[in-house]
Design a protein around this nucleic acid. Structure first.
Lengths: 253, 253
DNA sequence: CGACATGTTGAAGGGGATCAATGGTGGTGG
DNA sequence: CCACCACCATTGATCCCCTTCAACATGTCG
């Protein structure tokens, strides 16, 4: 394995230790995972519906999305994935693919075989638990999306989504959140929020002054107002909530 | 522990072995879990937002729901739980409660301490994996709900929801699915589908002839049409897809 | 029997969809 | 270097699904 892969795995490790505590050995084991880098063009599926996979995909560059679809071809994005996210870690325990993964921009992924992941999980229960926990954060996000799409209007939903992404990207959520790169089209935002592209355009315009989404980057001018409009509470993302009393291994009573 | 608790745990075990394979010892360990039965009145929270819990809740009688909420008090149900479902198994790895659980009808739950669950998970890796897998099925359901609420119209969304519930309850999904008890109000269906109560009423009327929802029970008159209207594909529920080649333990390569 | 939750129906309004057309912008090749 | 094309953003006009409000019916439980 060359250095690039190791740097990439560092991203993944970084993500995990936001919410779980590891000893040196465990961290080392994760950094030693064998990987297989793959470049994916924009708008190209890299995990297809119905397939049975034997590896999980770590996003290391670009943005990926999970897609649902109705019969008439209308699409719904159910998750965004950014560098450091393992987009389908759950496939380790559920290899049958239930929804496709697609690159939203030019993306680089690191394939990591299930057997290797099972290996570390078996040797280090703390890692197994971290994997499980990480999957559950994704589920918590999904749960918020249901609320977003089901009960918030376009403005609030879009604001909430942008807040979520900014927070997940680890940006300062103080009054002056910095700009960040987020290269998605309005059509993709529409698929994520359950709106039409036309209405996404109008909604973004309605948020002018609070946030600007243009040319692949997002500028949050007033975090507090954006969070207020989107009713955003970051708790569910479980950022930096490593349990005070170490809960780190699944061990006997 | 008395017999009732054991019968109840049997429900849970039954749920798990739909998707995971256990040896006798492992099954026994689950049946030996210490439990604490609690009765909950309808419309009463039994897990509250923000709380940190030290036990998970197995639903053994009645129906429970997971609730999201917007600031103006509008509610969104993000999951239904039926007897045999462990409503918050994920709390084992994420004890901070992100969304409240409420009984939708008079409900009996079995509290099972995290430490006991950790105990079996640690002693039997196959059980740990089954727990993780079960959580991921819930996540798959959630993902479908996003599509449902985001991209399907009222008729299709309602049909899909009813199909999901019938399937999860393990009913024959042949052309003549039997009736089943499902005691929710139209207001609760509204909170689950992201509709208003008025429109739920009209939507159910629009589905007359295909399905009847009345007085706490659902009669599916034409499963095929209901599934077609709801674009329902049961695959994501992972019913009876125990992997052919046993994948049952997290073990070294 | 009263009180309250639930179900039902009508009428009116709005948020967002759809259709359609135009203007940018970047990539590609001649 | 420019012509061309594909994709994306933008804007207007119209429509409709669903919401909201309001009234009434029905059922249920103390």
């Amino acid at each position: 394995m060359h250095d690039a892969s190791r740097d990439y795995l560092q991203l993944f490790l970084h993500r995990l230790i936001i919410r779980s505590r590891f000893c040196d050995q465990e961290m080392q084991a994760i950094l030693d995972l064998p990987t297989d880098a793959v470049k994916v063009a924009a708008n190209q599926d890299f995990v297809c519906l119905g397939e049975v996979v034997d590896h999980a995909c770590l996003i290391v560059e670009g943005i990926a999305g999970r897609f649902g679809q109705t019969e008439d071809g209308v699409r719904q994005i159910t998750a965004f994935y950014f560098p450091g996210d393992m987009a389908d870690l759950h496939s380790v325990v559920q290899p049958r693919v239930g929804s496709a993964l697609q690159a939203l921009t030019k993306t680089t992924i690191l394939r990591i075989s299930h057997s290797a992941l099972r290996g570390v999980a078996a040797r280090y229960p703390a890692v197994a638990e971290a994997f499980w926990r990480d999957c559950m954060v994704d589920a918590a996000v999904l749960s918020q999306w249901v609320v977003n799409v089901g009960r918030r209007d376009a403005r609030a939903g879009m604001a909430h989504l942008l807040c979520e992404i900014a927070t997940r990207l680890g940006l300062g959520t103080g009054s002056h959140a910095p700009d960040f790169a987020f290269s998605v089209t309005q059509a993709q935002l529409a698929d994520a929020t359950g709106l039409s592209t036309v209405h996404v355009n109008r909604t973004l315009k309605a948020l002018a002054g609070i946030v600007t989404v243009a040319r692949g980057s997002v500028q949050i001018h007033d975090w507090d107002r954006l969070a207020a409009v989107g009713e955003f509470e970051a708790d569910y993302l479980q950022i930096d909530v490593v349990p005070a009393e170490p809960l780190k291994v699944i061990q006997p009573i």
